[in-house]
């Protein structure tokens, strides 16, 4: 049971990641209409449109006029992640996340032996540069620049429409994360992650921190995919993890032996998923 309680959010995330893939697969092959399309744009129950707002931005940068359906879909998705935490997409939906999580999990075990434990660092602003540069590159080439090369879209497409050469992109990211970059693709390069980081700077649902309970054991920092965002001094002042880089993956919530973390809206309000005693 203890293993379950320190991993229940992780299991929930793997379930939503797999569930989204399965629903898209069933939509494409069995014409089950729960989710049709893919992560770029889709419809829920063949009615509610969804769309990747960053992809829509790139298409708009090419100068094309788009239909209202995709604009509404992008607004819905943007609104959803604005409420639930920008990079929630990365932790709960993106199919690349399990790949990079696996690499991050394997790295210390292989890394010690092969001397790549620390890894190469890329300046954290690089992914924002890639995110912004995608727009002029889209305007110049006349196609949505990141979407044409996106390993996220490629992974998703290959998993649904049969594995092809695109899985090489996934393998590339895995090797990059395992042996070269740390933080890897997701934290250093991915422009979609950067986009959702921007959304996350203002998003409502955040991980709240209770300094009274914390004994600075550091378990949360060890499991966090973006460990630089957990800074006890700042969290004691602000009361929550105040960073757009937070994925709301909830690993810190479940591993904390003293339940110092819980989900709550950014501005006051009652704790969500807090322990029975409630926060002081």
């Amino acid at each position: 049971m203890t293993w379950f309680w320190t991993h229940h959010y992780l299991l929930a995330r793997r379930t939503t990641q797999l569930g989204v893939l399965v629903l898209f697969w069933l939509g494409a092959h069995w014409h089950l209409g729960v989710l049709t399309g893919n992560l770029s744009s889709s419809r829920v129950l063949r009615t509610v449109p969804l769309a990747d707002p960053y992809a829509v931005l790139q298409i708009l940068a090419t100068g094309q006029v788009l239909g209202s359906t995709v604009l509404l879909g992008a607004a819905i998705v943007l609104g959803f992640w604005f409420v639930t935490g920008g990079r929630g997409f990365c932790a709960w939906v993106c199919p690349v996340n399990p790949v990079t999580d696996l690499a991050a999990w394997l790295r210390p075990q292989l890394g010690v032996r092969w001397g790549v434990r620390r890894g190469l660092r890329v300046d954290r602003s690089v992914r924002y540069w890639i995110m912004f540069l995608a727009l002029p590159v889209s305007a110049i080439t006349g196609v949505a620049a990141f979407e044409w090369l996106s390993p996220i879209a490629m992974t998703h497409r290959e998993l649904i429409y049969g594995p092809g050469l695109g899985l090489l992109a996934v393998a590339g990211i895995f090797v990059l994360d395992l042996f070269v970059l740390r933080p890897g693709w997701c934290g250093s390069l991915c422009p979609l992650g950067a986009f959702y980081s921007l959304v996350g700077r203002w998003s409502l649902l955040r991980v709240r921190f209770d300094p009274e309970r914390c004994d600075h054991c550091g378990d949360c920092i060890r499991v966090c995919p973006e460990p630089q965002i957990i800074r006890y001094d700042e969290m004691e002042r602000s009361g929550f993890i105040d960073s757009g880089n937070c994925l709301n993956c909830a690993r810190c919530l479940e591993v904390c032996p003293r339940d110092a973390y819980h989900f709550a809206p950014r501005f006051g309000g009652d704790a969500v998923g807090s322990p029975e005693e409630g926060s002081p």
Partner: peptide, 17 residues
């Protein structure tokens, strides 16, 4: 063709339909 390649978001909903 060029406008199509630019405006298609590659969601494959037409394929499914």
């Amino acid at each position: 063709e060029s406008a199509f390649l630019a405006s298609c978001i590659k969601c494959s909903q037409c394929v499914e339909a």
